[in-house]
Computed example of a mutant assay.
Amino acid sequence: MEYAKLGSSGIDVSNICLGSMTWGVQNSQQDADQQIEFAIDKGINFIDTAELYPVPPSGEKYGDTERIIGNWLARNKAQRQNLVLATKIAGNGLPWIRNAEDISGPAIIKSVDDSLQRLQTDYIDLYQLHWPNRTSPHFAKHRPNQVRFSEVSAAHETAVMHEILDALQTCIDAGKVKHCGLSDDTTWGINQYLKLSEKYQLPKMVSIQNEFSLLHSKDWPYLIENCIHENIAYLPWSPLAGGALSGKYLNGARPEGSRWTMSQRNGLFRDSEQSMNAVAEYKTLAEKNGYSAAQLALAWCKQVDGVTSTIIGATSIKQLNENINAFEITLDDVLLSEIDEILKRFPAPF
């Protein structure tokens, strides 16, 4: 296992982060326990969760993934100091979470306390904003004019960011949060937070997690360049594009119990003709070189300059082992060139 600094935090994290959003719907407490212990045995020290989880999100299941992790931590207290535990406050739009309201200072204070209670821990290593209050070009909203940036009040958004940082400082001063980060944000969002933290001596965002994969590489180069030079850890989520890059959904297949058989909050936006054509080509290329399609996609993600730790998830130990093993693969120049040729033809397939 390889390790890297989590941005400017000084914390060493494994280059694989164990995602947890299936725990509570597709996976049971027992499944989660097995995955956590398997991952730790493989050298993974980084676990990511969110108050929103499990997915698909619902009021009935809200917070259950944090509770599952908390149950494991309560039975394995000696392991807590060896783990980097990350969670996230949900943004606006969900009626069962703070009446669908924006993230605010008071919301941060309450949500940190609620997450600590569910996680059965005294502190959170990395506390992240799951998505910004303003609409951002994520979740398939990345075509020109799908988001109208000119209609956003930069002054208002910046004032709320200042309020959020003040609240995060309060949590850090209380020992409840060690470091803070972003998710599903943009270069502008990163830099506004950096300016505020420097001007007012408030916490610096140390990381950002955004969707990034062979089907969704829009953060390269501009946002990732910004992360490198500002010492912000870049944490790709959905490196398999919601499972699409495994090839299991080709030709309209829907394996029993798989995520695409369930209702999705944002719909199956990755299921386009272009996406499936790209996946088919990546799968053929992978198998020609002795890898699974998922392994090819994960090995590619790992080698991208600026990637700190890739968030992976699984619904079985077999799948988790296959995904972890992908990070031992070194793609040679010839294979990387062949991957790049496909990427050129399908740069934004959904």
Rank of each mutant, 00 (worst) to 15 (best):
A4H: 13
D12Q: 09
V13W: 03
S14M: 06
I16K: 03
G19I: 00
T22M: 02
E37W: 06
I40G: 05
I40K: 08
Y53W: 02
P56H: 07
R67K: 15
G70L: 04
N71D: 11
N71Y: 12
R75T: 11
N76V: 05
K77M: 11
A78V: 11
R80T: 14
G91K: 12
S104E: 05
P106M: 10
P106T: 11
L116T: 01
Q120V: 08
T121P: 06
D122S: 10
D122E: 14
Y123S: 08
D125M: 03
L126W: 04
Y127N: 06
Q128I: 09
L129M: 11
T135W: 12
P144N: 07
Q146I: 13
S150K: 12
M161D: 14
L165S: 07
G175M: 11
V177T: 05
S183K: 08
D184K: 07
D184V: 07
K195P: 12
K204F: 06
Q209C: 03
L214E: 00
D219A: 01
I224S: 06
I224R: 07
H229L: 13
I232C: 02
Y249C: 00
L250D: 00
L250N: 00
L250K: 00
P255I: 04
A278F: 13
A280D: 02
E281M: 10
E281T: 12
K283V: 03
S292E: 13
C301P: 02
K302M: 04
V304Q: 09
T308W: 06
G313P: 02
T315M: 04
N325C: 14
A326N: 03
L336P: 15
E341R: 13
P347T: 09
